[in-house]
């Protein structure tokens, strides 16, 4: 037993006649002592978080009220000017729309699609096949986003890419196009790659959630003559709702923070058609030398993701599963 373990043991009650203090006051003192110990234990993490997460957040908020020339280092206070420009900037709204599309499609595929696939895999009788399929679907998630982006860039390449070659081979030559080079297809081509990449990871998490459901529930339902579809909707779906809530938060937050795949595949082009908030922020700062405006976009991203996360957390709290 370690020293710290001992410290956490409740103190033995002192002999009554020797004590002059009431039991209530003793409890308060003990709580105060424990409270300070707790603070000491969490202090390093709080300090690190403060220095590397909250301080930059606050600093970024400050930068968003400035015009900042990185070459001369000159910073001029411009009030809410960057925010006014942002609300009047069509590329900001285009980026927001693209992020929203990303979120909607990701929820459809990576939450509900993955849940259905997980249920199908877990419904297989063969343990071996379940393992193989989980691994097969998970492999794309092990590839880095940058590598996956490059890989798909070559798949989508209009002249040498295998997607157009496959369409030609299948007699669907009319559908061939520059998937990343056309304004109306670029963002969807990127989103498709992202679904491929994240689908397996979500499936694996849903598989774990499904495995936690007691098998007696399914057995009882089967004895009562309930079919597989009804079992899914009446048992699986309600009992993985906590995981569903978590996946929604992760997926939606991820959709508003997307950056790597867009940078690698299109850099937000052509004609800003595949711009998302992350790449527009980057382009505003590092290409257009408008760091104050970039900070305003970053603040918008933070507020959007924070609000979405709080809403989803509140909803999922109400949907907690009690075993």
């Amino acid at each position: 037993m370690t020293v710290s373990d001992t410290a956490w043991k409740p103190a033995a009650p002192p002999p009554a006649p020797l004590s002059t203090k009431s039991p209530k006051s003793r409890t308060r003192k003990s709580a105060r002592t424990h409270g300070w110990r707790n603070v000491v234990w969490v202090l390093p993490a709080v300090l690190l978080l403060g220095a590397f997460a909250y301080l930059p957040l606050v600093q970024n908020l400050g930068f968003s009220f400035l015009k900042w020339d990185i070459y001369s280092g000159r910073q001029t206070f411009v009030g809410a000017d960057n925010y006014v420009r942002m609300f009047n900037d069509p590329i900001f709204w285009k980026s927001l729309l693209n992020n929203s599309l990303y979120a909607i499609i990701s929820i459809a595929f990576q939450v509900f699609g993955a849940m259905i696939l997980a249920a199908m895999i877990e419904g297989l009788r063969s343990q071996r096949w379940r393992g193989i399929l989980r691994a097969v679907y998970f492999v794309p998630s092990a590839i880095s986003l940058t590598v996956a982006g490059l890989l798909f860039y070559f798949i989508y390449e209009p002249e040498m890419g295998i997607l157009n070659a496959a369409l030609d081979f299948l007699g669907l030559g009319n559908f061939t196009q520059a998937w990343l080079g056309q304004e109306n297809t670029a963002i969807f081509a990127i989103i498709a790659m992202s679904q491929w990449q994240g689908f397996g990871y979500c499936t694996l998490l849903f598989s774990v959630a499904l495995q936690r459901i007691p098998s007696e529930l399914y057995e009882a339902a089967s004895i009562d003559g309930v079919g597989p579809f009804q079992r899914f909707f009446s048992i699986s779906l309600p009992l993985v709702r906590e995981m569903t809530g978590l996946m929604m938060i992760v997926t939606v937050s991820g959709a508003f923070q997307v950056f790597n795949e867009v940078m690698v595949m299109t850099s937000g082009g052509p004609n800003n058609s595949s711009q998302v908030l992350g790449t527009w922020l980057y382009r505003s700062g590092f290409v257009r030398n408008d760091f104050g405006y970039a900070a305003a976009v970053a603040t918008a991203v933070f507020i959007i993701t924070l609000v979405l996360a709080v809403i989803q957390l509140r909803i999922s709290k109400k949907r907690r599963v009690q075993w």
Binding site: L55, V58, Q59, L61, G62, F63, F65, L66, D69, S72, G73, R74, Q75, T76, F77
Partner: peptide
């Protein structure tokens, strides 16, 4: 936020 970033003439 403003105190942390400050304004400077560079």
């Amino acid at each position: 936020a403003l105190a942390l970033t400050g304004c400077s003439d560079g």
